[in-house]
Design a protein around this nucleic acid. Structure first.
Lengths: 337, 337
DNA sequence: CTGACCGGTGTTATCGCTAACATCATCGGT
DNA sequence: ACCGATGATGTTAGCGATAACACCGGTCAG
């Protein structure tokens, strides 16, 4: 008689066991108010006994809504984006949403559009695009209106809803910290120019200098790698007037530190350094690095919030949310010698 | 009359436009052979015109199958696991599967079980667990049989289907490379003892030494961080008999390099070093690091393959697949002074 | 005392798809 | 010229849930 083993239990099975109609089971599941306590308990017992789990496909079919969020991210292991993604997955998971990640090799228009389409095929409730550079941001033009979409780390000048770390504020704080230590100006090693994060940090750095009428040295542009930080460091180490450097991320700072130490420039005695990101190793650099810590968890929460607002309200506004990072003080900053 | 704008086009809309039945549309979509070419073209045109996309929920409901794969991974940004995840997402995406990632803060039994349950609620076609340490492996005991499951980086001694990098082979190769350079023995800085990756590397290292009757020095156990590599380095740098060190990952090697350089031990002149992972920065370490590169893409492909086999055949065997890593030779190894 | 209302429950239709079967030409073989 | 096979297509019946409405007994205002 127990031939039903072949099939997963459905709502009707639970209903039969509990002696109610399947609709009542549905009510219990969805916390409808009009269910007698006693009935609710009977149903819940039946659910547990059968190890029943609602069929999401069936629910999605009738409601027209999934509990799925699509994320488009680059196939990279850069600390910032990876942390963001990880934080978002956790936040969404806690809110009862599944996250489907579409990886993309390069952040160009074609790849991103394809990834977005794949997500639309899955009928995701909303899409998050981690679009840290201009190529990615361009691709968003292709996304049809009507799909709830939030951009993270994207272009501040575009119309899409956006959540970012307040790069400028963090850079401002870092730079000001160096100035207040007594340095007359602060040099800057920047990330790639087409990354919004990098641009924002340049902006904050410049504003901090201008706000106290400090001289604004030329930006040293690098990529995000330790290698390029090292090369920048080889150059800066030769310049005795350089006593303070703000690096656009911690890996750059790592390379810089090594170059400085090779050239006999002691940190922080001769040169003070501040990074950005607070990678896990930063506390173990030599010396432990003063850096700016973005709150990825907060960015993730804001992103999720913004997305869910769009899903439910169908917002067409263009909301911006920024999350302020904060300075983590360690041992790589001191007054100039 | 065009009031249907409110609803996404369904199969019947396509059918009507093409002048066929919805079943014929379904046949076209699923590449059934018995459709006249002309009909197929008409249907495809209609599909394109309406920008129709099949409703996965409806399909999943009737077939009982999703095109979703659940992955359980730790909420960390360690290079190995992060790369693996990223590679798997890409491989699965190319095979037409969506990947839903369930992040877990700690790899203990409870968290992993919860993540697995969330995936089962979603009725994923299969589950991949990245279970690099014993806590994670223990949790797999809770996963009910019948759910296609593949473990990556898991416990080689357990019964679950498993794909891993061949840690022992990589370590063997690295160690042998050092021995062949002329070193009488090789020291080893290991990752955490409860990680299978670390254990496998210790094993390979030991076997390489034993195979040439070299002395087997005590294992220096660390965690995966540069900081602990640095501490290990401070110790080893004081021991003149140490001329070759194999580190369980590149970050350890980075810390070790710094400690050695601080103590005036030149690499590779005084001490040769080999790492594991080939992180992107490894080529820019000082000196550029000889290391072992795991092929994460291959691991991802094997994992997907194994999972899909289980999905279709319902395999109950306990297949093992290992992917051989290979040595990347750079400048951190030379004959002993 | 009665009708309107309400809480608790059941019944039925429906979402968009695929599986299974039904139908109807067409066609080669005898 | 008839017949069963075969190809192309249509029809019908679910999959497992929610929505909308129907129903029924009790409470309460008038």
């Amino acid at each position: 008689m127990d031939q039903k083993i072949s099939r997963d239990p459905a709502m009707t099975d639970v209903a039969r066991l509990a002696g109610v109609s399947h609709q009542t089971v549905s009510r219990v599941l969805n916390n409808h108010p009009n269910v007698r306590e006693q009935t609710r308990l009977r149903v819940q017992a039946a659910i547990k006994e059968l190890d029943y789990r609602p069929n999401r496909a069936a629910r999605a079919l009738v409601t027209g809504k999934t509990q799925l969020i699509g994320v488009v991210a680059q196939n990279s292991t850069l600390y910032g984006p990876a942390s963001l993604l990880s934080a978002f997955e956790e936040a969404a998971g806690q809110a009862g949403f599944a996250v489907s990640v579409g990886r993309v090799k390069v952040l160009d228009r074609e790849s991103i559009s394809a990834a977005v389409e794949r997500h639309r095929d899955q009928r995701v409730a909303g899409i998050v695009v981690i679009a840290p550079n201009s190529g990615a941001a361009d691709a968003l033009a292709d996304v049809p209106a009507g799909v709830p979409l939030v951009t993270v780390d994207g272009d501040p000048d575009r119309a899409t809803p956006l959540v970012t770390v307040d790069q400028a504020a963090g850079a401002f704080e870092a730079t000001t910290h160096l100035l207040q230590a007594g340095h007359s100006t602060v040099w800057h090693v920047s990330g790639p120019a087409d990354w919004f994060d990098a641009a924002g940090r340049v902006q904050g750095w410049r504003r901090a200098l201008e706000s106290v009428d400090a001289e604004v040295p030329p930006v040293v542009t690098a990529d995000w790698s330790a290698a390029s930080g090292y090369r920048a460091g080889q150059m800066l180490a030769r310049m005795p007037e350089v006593t303070a450097v703000f690096c656009s991320n911690d890996h750059l700072a790592l390379g810089l530190l090594r170059a400085l130490s090779e050239r006999g420039r002691r940190v922080p005695h001769d040169v003070s350094v501040v990074g950005f990101d607070d990678v896990p190793e930063a506390a173990y650099f030599i010396p432990p690095l003063t850096t700016v810590r973005p709150d990825f968890a907060a960015v993730a929460r804001e992103t999720l919030g913004l997305l869910l607002e769009q899903v439910s309200d169908g917002e067409t506004a263009r909301p911006r949310r920024t999350v302020a990072p904060f300075l983590v003080t360690r041992d790589s900053v001191s007054p100039p010698a």
